[in-house]
């Protein structure tokens, strides 16, 4: 996609500067000066890339084969070969952090994608005041940070929290109707959420779902890009609502779904702020909230094991790359309209 645009762009640009006396030299000089200007424009990015991206990536790769506490200066770096990676094999906290992150990702990605699509479908209905609701659904995702983590800390309080209060109220309503028919009471008691290792992951998933408005907006944009004629044609062919969704909406939306899938997976591998605030920075209780990035942070900036932390970060990098590649490999379900046109 990007490639096509670029070719189109340069084609239009090349049309100028022709039809002069000596087109060859003039154009060449023009091209050279344009390239020079371009690189001047790019200078900030190039500097930033070398200093904060390319350089650090290589240095981090080097560090991942070394031991270093960071305090003893660059001379304190000790090359240890594959030791850091060998250490991971016996590091129980590393194993726990991988487990936590994988469980969280496996639960939150499908749910937030399904929820995002569902809400986007609703937001795509032609109803009065729908723009207001779009704003409402997007609202929580701008509040992602320490403040909303605080808020959720109290929402998850077992005895006084809003969530368990809601569960109790719901239970009373249900029991009211049950009592009409049967002489029994069903007990509705919310779990301990953040205090119970078995429920911690669920709590984080709920929080993530609440703040997932930005993917909803991207789905919505995708839905609005689907031509109306396709639905009209489907209706003429006698397709019902479900069939239209299955055979028109889903295929047409699949590039956007794919885009969101990749972003959501990468994002959920990197959950940090909420976990840092809600677990007191150490992944408690029982390391159930020791998500991978939090573990990297602890190793690097609490224990000053910069070498080990770099190895952990590089492992994450490689995993993110692999997972993204795998997703591309199995992206046969994605339907690109451009394919038909050639």
């Amino acid at each position: 996609m990007a490639q096509n645009n670029m070719v189109a762009g340069s084609g239009a640009g090349a049309a100028s500067g022709m039809a002069r006396k000596k087109p060859g030299t003039r154009r060449l000089r023009g091209a050279v000066s344009e390239a020079l200007v371009a690189y001047v424009f790019l200078l900030p990015w190039i500097l930033g890339f070398v200093l904060f991206m390319g350089g650090p990536i290589l240095f981090s790769l080097f560090l991942s084969f070394a031991h270093w506490d960071g305090i003893s200066g660059l001379s304190g770096i000790r090359w240890v070969g594959l030791d850091n990676f060998r250490d991971m094999a016996t590091d129980l906290r590393f194993r726990k952090s991988v487990y936590d992150t994988v469980v969280f990702t496996a639960a939150s990605v499908p749910l937030s994608m399904a929820g995002g699509i569902l809400v986007a479908l609703l937001m795509n209905l032609k109803l009065k005041g729908i723009a207001f609701f779009r704003t409402i659904f997007y609202l929580p995702s701008v509040t992602a940070g320490v403040a909303s983590a605080f808020l959720w800390f109290f929402i998850f309080q077992p005895d006084y929290g809003l969530l368990n209060y809601g569960i109790r109220v719901f239970g009373e309503v249900v029991n009211f109707f049950v009592r009409l028919a049967l002489p029994v009471d069903i007990t509705f008691r919310g779990p301990q959420w953040l205090a119970d290792p078995a429920w911690v992951h669920s709590a984080y998933v709920i929080m993530t779902l609440w703040g997932g408005g930005s993917s909803m907006i991207i789905y919505l944009a995708g839905l609005q890009g689907i031509p109306e004629q396709l639905y009209e044609a489907a209706e003429i062919d006698g397709a019902n609502q479900w069939q239209q969704f299955r055979n028109v909406t889903l295929p047409m939306l699949s590039p956007v779904i794919f885009f969101n899938l990749i972003l959501t997976v990468i994002g959920s591998f990197q959950i940090f702020t909420q976990a840092f605030v809600l677990s007191g920075g150490n992944g408690s209780p029982a390391d159930a909230a020791l998500f991978y990035v939090l573990y990297i942070y602890q190793e690097a900036f609490r224990l000053f094991n910069f070498g080990y932390a770099s190895a952990l970060a590089w492992l994450l990098f490689v995993v993110v790359l692999l997972v993204t590649l795998i997703q591309f490999k199995f992206s046969g379900w994605v339907y690109y309209e451009g394919d038909l046109k050639g």
Binding site: M6, G55, A300, S310, A313
Partner: peptide, 23 residues
């Protein structure tokens, strides 16, 4: 260069965190 720009989207911030801190 543009492919590199897009590629940097995939680099987890944690990879560059430690070296950038040292810098």
């Amino acid at each position: 260069l543009f492919v590199i720009v897009l590629g940097t989207l995939m680099v987890p911030a944690q990879v560059t965190m430690v070296p950038t801190y040292i810098l």
